[in-house]
């Protein structure tokens, strides 16, 4: 077995007496798409926050390519290649769509320079003109085009529709050029004709073969068509892990996902 791209070992977070994520150990490999499912409040987004560093774990560790990154800030983890698209849209509201993505490509250019950035790089960052960095700008335009937002490059985020914001959210993550892509309900609240834009993007990403993709998604048809593997969280615990067909059929999932077991209700929920 190759080294997992991302691995969590006994990852736990406690909020007061409530254990939101409870000793979750799980490994994710490059070139695979894992769907993380579970009822509302199961701890899926909290689990994501622990991996990408928005929340510090109470105990347990997160590993990126075998290196322990538990002590790193969210910014450092992003620079190391963990990309995150948020469930609740989380953008720079008064900046244009292009500016939003440009900030991500700027960050990417900086982290790519790495140590070479140095003092000279800092000085350049302070004294050069942002509007003259055409490389960063054109790369940002490419990523905007990938989510069909190129024509709206000058529109401030506050003036975008919900669907466009969701697409921009994804574009920001793509622009960071990460190895690990964490999608948190990327299509939630999108209109029917917008959903394929994001799904196609995820499919293209998967076809690339080297990306580690984690997807939190409620729509079961989406999960079925995309996922190589499904991980089920329930009350903060990992309760099932395996191939999609097998996991969906397992009684523990049917109970965890719906709180009740009747097979008909499950089928109705999955297809309806």
């Amino acid at each position: 077995m190759p080294t997992p791209a991302i691995e969590t070992r006994d990852l736990t977070i406690r909020f007061g007496g409530h254990v939101a994520v409870d000793a979750v150990s799980c490994a994710f490999h490059a070139g695979t798409l894992t769907a993380i499912v579970g009822p509302n409040g199961a701890g899926k987004t909290t689990y994501f926050n622990l991996i990408s560093g928005q929340l510090p774990a109470t105990s347990g560790t997160v590993h990126l390519d075998a290196a322990d990154i538990s002590h790193l800030s969210a910014a450092a983890r992003a620079r190391r290649g963990i990309g995150r698209a948020f469930q609740i849209t989380n953008l720079f509201p008064n900046l244009s769509t292009l500016e939003n993505v440009r900030l991500a490509t700027q960050s990417r250019a900086r982290s790519r320079a790495g140590a070479a950035h140095g003092l000279a790089g800092t000085l350049r960052e302070l004294t050069s003109r942002w509007d003259r960095d055409t490389a960063v700008r054109s790369r940002a335009l490419d990523y905007l085009a990938e989510v069909n937002l190129a024509e709206k490059r000058d529109v401030p985020v506050v003036a975008l529709s919900h669907g466009d914001k969701r697409k921009l959210e994804v574009a920001l993550m793509m622009a960071l050029e990460p190895h690990v892509f964490m999608f948190d309900e990327p299509t939630a609240g999108m209109s029917v004709d917008e959903v394929p834009v994001v799904l196609d993007l995820i499919k293209r990403l998967k076809a690339r073969g080297d990306a580690t993709i984690l997807l939190v998604e409620h729509k079961m048809d989406v999960v079925r068509s995309l996922a190589d593997r499904i991980v089920v969280l329930h009350n903060g615990r990992l309760v099932a892990d395996g191939a999609p067909a097998e996991v969906i059929a397992s009684p523990i999932v049917q109970e965890a996902y719906l709180g009740i077991a009747p097979t008909k209700a499950v089928e109705a929920a999955l297809h309806g």
Binding site: A104, W130, V136
Partner: peptide
Amino acid sequence: VVNSPFGRVLQAIRENEFRAEAIGFD
């Protein structure tokens, strides 16, 4: 300075500190 790449990051932080951190800016 305010119109440099650095200045844009400052404005990004003002707009949304959380997201600025999430895209890799300390």
